[in-house]
Design a protein around this nucleic acid. Structure first.
Lengths: 196, 196
DNA sequence: GCCTGTCTAGAACGATCGCTCTAGGCTGGG
DNA sequence: CCCAGCCTAGAGCGATCGTTCTAGACAGGC
């Protein structure tokens, strides 16, 4: 994969995180990435929309890997704490980045869900893959099959929802509240399943 | 309050729900509301930013009233179901509106949190007022004081998060999963507090 | 009748938008 | 050396952006 292409995606990702899709101009992306407009259209012939899809997919894959990496570090007897630490890690990066959005996908998804079907589908695919990743972790955490789908969806919703609140309030409170609650939910669901 | 001013706010609200802040032009607001650009600047001398603040505050108050209205309908022995029905109601309006965002504030908040302090503060105030409304309901539901703040925050985060997921997937699943989980959380917290 | 303040009306401003286009630099194979 | 293909470079397109401006419609008080 081209190095310039990567720089374009990285810079666009950062700009989307800071100000969203529509507020970010191609000229801004050009200067931030050091690539010219011509290069952007060379790598993304579909223009801004196609670039948006690429950013969504790239970020989606990166976040899924991060999630798996954090969950891999949890002790076998307490995978629920891995879920909790995911939120704590997000809280750290949020504060470090002067409360730039940790996740460009949620922002962009809300902007374009009714206006760009390609980007909407890309975001939908990413969310589905995150739910999938969470579901398999829940299964190995001992959560019963009747609860894994719902809890995995709730986990992703909690991530996106607490990002909004923490960013708007410039405080990690919402993220930590969400982390603790998700941790409890996973523990309780696993315990309930073990009890039956 | 002027009737024209109301029409401007209502139309802007709808446009923000559909496509967000930056994708919505003043010309579009003008034609959608039937008010001219001059009228918009007459009522909102601060321009688009000031109009955005007004929309956020107006929607915030409306949603808080809706929340209270729905919670008022729940039977005294089961206030948790009120929380659950709030999500079910959102799921209905989402599907009816062709999956337009039920809440413009979350969208706008993510777009402007790092670029417009007035709008960020307005959104922060709205979220805080929602947390406050939820907290007082949790208290009267019998939830212990050590849990009300966290659960109220989680409730609002779940609302915003499941809106994103349900809208991008064009399915009510996330909203219903969130509703059921919040209902359980409230019930369990109340039961745990009653047990001690 | 006129005056004052509220509100409507929309032309016009410079800036920026996403995008297209042509031209040129660079590299590896022949 | 030349050529083909990949990539860079940026001027320029029409359209639209948020905003400002002047002019007029309309009402209630005198």
């Amino acid at each position: 994969m081209s190095e310039t292409r990567d720089r374009i995606i990285t810079a666009t990702n950062e700009l989307f995180r800071r100000q969203g899709f529509h507020a970010t101009g191609l000229k801004e992306i050009s200067t931030a990435s050091g690539a010219t407009i011509g290069s952007i259209y060379h790598f993304f012939p579909g223009g801004k929309e196609r670039l948006g899809v690429a950013v969504i997919e790239s970020t989606g894959a990166a976040y899924r890997e991060l999630f798996d990496a954090i969950l891999d570090e949890s002790p076998d007897d307490d995978p629920a704490s891995g879920f909790e630490r995911f939120f704590a890690a997000a809280a750290d990066t949020l504060a470090e980045s002067d409360y730039i959005d940790p996740c460009p996908i949620g922002t962009v998804a809300r902007e374009i869900a009714n206006t760009s079907e390609p980007m909407r589908l890309a975001a939908d695919g990413v969310f589905a893959s995150w739910v999938d990743a969470a579901r398999s972790r829940l299964t190995s955490a001992g959560v019963g099959q009747e609860d894994t789908g719902r809890l995995a969806t709730v986990f992703v919703a909690m991530v996106e929802g607490s990002f909004v609140l923490s960013r708007t309030s410039r405080s990690a409170d919402a993220l930590l509240a969400a982390g603790r609650t998700v941790g409890d939910l996973v523990r309780n669901a696993a315990a309930a399943n073990a009890g039956t």
